[in-house]
Design a protein around this nucleic acid. Structure first.
Lengths: 208, 208
DNA sequence: TTTCATGGCTGAGCAGCTGACGGAAAAACA
DNA sequence: TGTTTTTCCGTCAGCTGCTCAGCCATGAAA
């Protein structure tokens, strides 16, 4: 599609990128306005809305300097494309997934693998997914979401254990199916306390 | 000189750095506090003052998220712990493996995976190694070497085709064994022209 | 022992920064 | 001419850094 960018839009993108590079932080609306010659924050806001709609950046509402450039901008202005992903160790019940207590470390991977902002990593225990090419000791990357499509491989929390399985929802219960003929599916009633989908598996890394 | 940093100070620095890398913007005082367990913004402020005095970062007053990390921090947390690995496309005979003609692109991975300097990456074609958890489309990482230990998974060049198999050397010939009962081993006489071990597989990455 | 200073922190409140938005006007376009 | 796009101005609410007044533990000084 490659939508056209106006001169102001290009200037704004270039400025945002330069600020991130030079100061490690995106500019505010007023800083952008001063740079590109727009005196109203609403003018800048409108401009950024347009850029967001065209897919050149994404923003988080009600946060200062919450502008993130997207892949598309990276093509225009190439940047470092590695991402740092938290590696979850053991999952402790009642503690948020990404709390320090659960963190084993960080791992850097290409953005093409860890596409989402909040991607997390988990070391696989057990051999219940070997037929899907997921072996014990592998590190899987998951995108946080509390639901999934049938057939997705998901990370699910069962009590204090996180488990990786195929997601097979049924009308009143959920079937977590292993990829190993020696294991049986885990069937959980919907609404079972302590059961939760943590995320969908989007990638994998193995060290031999 | 390397002044001592308390645990909280290290956590704060690591968090700030991770936020800058992953979101392109430094965190606010309250975000830092929530992460490292300091409930008062003044506590965080005090902590940052100390870090600034020790030279690990610099700040601009009265601006949001105005934290910049200094060289010294870069030493503590090396920014370049990711490695850029060449992704080989098709292997053309007679051309060095890493020549531009063979290159499909670059991919960034953690040093823990791509341990060697010369690590290269290859996209897997075919399903001959599925029982070893290596599926079609996976990217494997290999360390260049022209020999290997029995049982290693290797990348071997057979004419113009690169193939991934178990390495089973025998007295006067070499057996390349697939991990899939529907395939037969490839047996090659030692010294066959056009046959060469390109490297040993040391890691793998999959995008789902 | 007591006293004092210091470092590290809490909690509350304030002021300035920052983004969101409505209304109007200018500019561009059909 | 009417319509859409873009900008300005002003205002507001929420985010964010800063200040002030303490608390507590540690350690040195009296």
């Amino acid at each position: 599609m490659a939508e056209q960018l106006t001169e102001k839009q290009q200037k704004a993108l270039a400025f945002i990128r330069a600020e991130i590079r030079n100061h490690g932080r995106p500019p505010t609306l007023r800083e952008i306005g001063a740079e590109i010659g727009v005196s109203s924050t609403n003018g800048v806001r409108y401009l950024l809305d347009t850029l967001e709609r065209k897919g050149y950046l994404s923003r988080s509402p009600m946060l200062s300097r919450a502008i993130e450039l997207t892949e598309r901008t990276a093509v225009l202005f190439p940047m470092d494309d590695a991402r740092e992903v938290p590696l979850i160790g053991r999952v402790a019940a009642g503690i948020p997934l990404l709390a320090t207590e659960n963190l084993e470390g960080h791992i850097r991977v290409d953005r093409s693998i860890a596409s989402s902002d909040e991607t997390f990593a988990l070391r696989v225990r057990g051999d219940s997914m070997t037929d899907a090419g997921i072996l014990e000791g592998d590190v899987i990357f998951a995108k946080p979401q509390d639901t999934a499509n049938p057939g997705d491989i998901v990370v699910a929390l069962l009590g204090e254990e996180a488990t990786v399985k195929y997601y097979r929802p049924q009308t009143d219960r959920i079937c977590l199916e292993p990829a190993n003929r020696y294991y049986s599916p885990i069937v959980v009633e919907r609404g079972t306390p302590g059961f939760r989908i943590l995320g969908r598996v989007i990638g994998l890394m193995r060290k031999l």
